[in-house]
Computed example of a mutant assay.
Amino acid sequence: MNFFTRILIDTILFIALAGLFAQTGMFYVSSIWVALLASFILACLNVLVKPILWVLSLPINIMTLGLFSIVINGVMLQLTSYFVGSMYFHFSSFGAAMLIAIIMSVCNAILADHTND
């Protein structure tokens, strides 16, 4: 997928998931512009930080047959929340960040399959 397409899809997913979990308080996004900023920051972190975390966690990732990558995705979302500001974009717990990471990974996998050229 194109870089900007991924940012747009992540923005829509952030807004949709914030609306889905609005009553629970698990995930909060204050506006569409914050979701767009968070998507851009997440994309930058995925390019800069995620490869380093992936290499450092490679042994545990192999032992868990790749399931530890969910934890890495949760960490990336928590870092995004930190950089955007917890006042505008936050998760209630690390478990909530991991749940959002799982849902976003599944949605991105489905959409990536349908948007290939």
Rank of each mutant, 00 (worst) to 15 (best):
residue 2 N to G: 11
residue 2 N to R: 10
residue 4 F to P: 00
residue 5 T to G: 11
residue 5 T to H: 05
residue 6 R to W: 06
residue 7 I to N: 01
residue 8 L to I: 14
residue 8 L to T: 13
residue 9 I to Q: 03
residue 9 I to E: 01
residue 10 D to H: 12
residue 10 D to W: 06
residue 11 T to F: 04
residue 11 T to C: 08
residue 12 I to W: 02
residue 13 L to I: 15
residue 15 I to W: 10
residue 15 I to M: 14
residue 16 A to G: 11
residue 16 A to N: 03
residue 17 L to T: 05
residue 18 A to P: 11
residue 19 G to N: 14
residue 22 A to N: 13
residue 23 Q to M: 07
residue 25 G to D: 09
residue 25 G to F: 08
residue 26 M to W: 14
residue 26 M to A: 13
residue 26 M to C: 04
residue 27 F to H: 08
residue 27 F to R: 05
residue 28 Y to L: 10
residue 29 V to M: 04
residue 31 S to G: 12
residue 32 I to P: 00
residue 32 I to V: 15
residue 34 V to S: 07
residue 35 A to P: 01
residue 37 L to S: 09
residue 37 L to H: 00
residue 38 A to Y: 01
residue 38 A to F: 01
residue 39 S to N: 06
residue 39 S to M: 06
residue 40 F to V: 15
residue 40 F to I: 15
residue 42 L to I: 06
residue 42 L to D: 02
residue 43 A to R: 08
residue 43 A to S: 15
residue 43 A to F: 10
residue 44 C to R: 04
residue 44 C to H: 01
residue 44 C to P: 00
residue 45 L to Q: 05
residue 45 L to S: 06
residue 45 L to C: 07
residue 45 L to D: 03
residue 45 L to F: 09
residue 45 L to E: 04
residue 47 V to K: 11
residue 47 V to S: 07
residue 50 K to Q: 10
residue 52 I to N: 02
residue 53 L to D: 06
residue 54 W to C: 02
residue 55 V to M: 11
residue 56 L to F: 14
residue 56 L to M: 15
residue 57 S to Q: 04
residue 58 L to R: 07
residue 58 L to E: 07
residue 58 L to D: 04
residue 59 P to Y: 06
residue 59 P to N: 05
residue 61 N to C: 07
residue 63 M to D: 00
residue 63 M to W: 13
residue 64 T to R: 02
residue 64 T to W: 02
residue 65 L to E: 06
residue 66 G to H: 06
residue 66 G to W: 06
residue 68 F to C: 04
residue 69 S to Q: 09
residue 70 I to Q: 02
residue 71 V to F: 14
residue 71 V to E: 02
residue 73 N to M: 00
residue 74 G to Y: 03
residue 75 V to Y: 03
residue 76 M to Q: 07
residue 76 M to A: 10
residue 78 Q to Y: 09
residue 78 Q to G: 03
residue 78 Q to R: 08
residue 78 Q to I: 13
residue 79 L to V: 09
residue 79 L to R: 08
residue 80 T to H: 02
residue 80 T to R: 01
residue 80 T to I: 04
residue 80 T to W: 00
residue 80 T to F: 02
residue 82 Y to F: 15
residue 83 F to G: 05
residue 85 G to N: 02
residue 85 G to Y: 03
residue 86 S to H: 13
residue 87 M to D: 13
residue 87 M to H: 14
residue 87 M to Y: 08
residue 87 M to Q: 15
residue 90 H to I: 00
residue 92 S to G: 10
residue 92 S to L: 08
residue 93 S to N: 10
residue 93 S to P: 09
residue 95 G to V: 09
residue 95 G to K: 03
residue 96 A to M: 06
residue 97 A to V: 02
residue 99 L to K: 00
residue 99 L to D: 03
residue 100 I to T: 04
residue 101 A to V: 01
residue 105 S to M: 11
residue 105 S to Q: 10
residue 105 S to D: 12
residue 107 C to V: 15
residue 107 C to I: 15
residue 109 A to T: 14
residue 110 I to A: 12
residue 111 L to T: 10
residue 111 L to Y: 03
residue 112 A to W: 08
residue 114 H to Q: 11
residue 114 H to N: 10
residue 115 T to E: 06
residue 116 N to W: 05
residue 116 N to A: 12
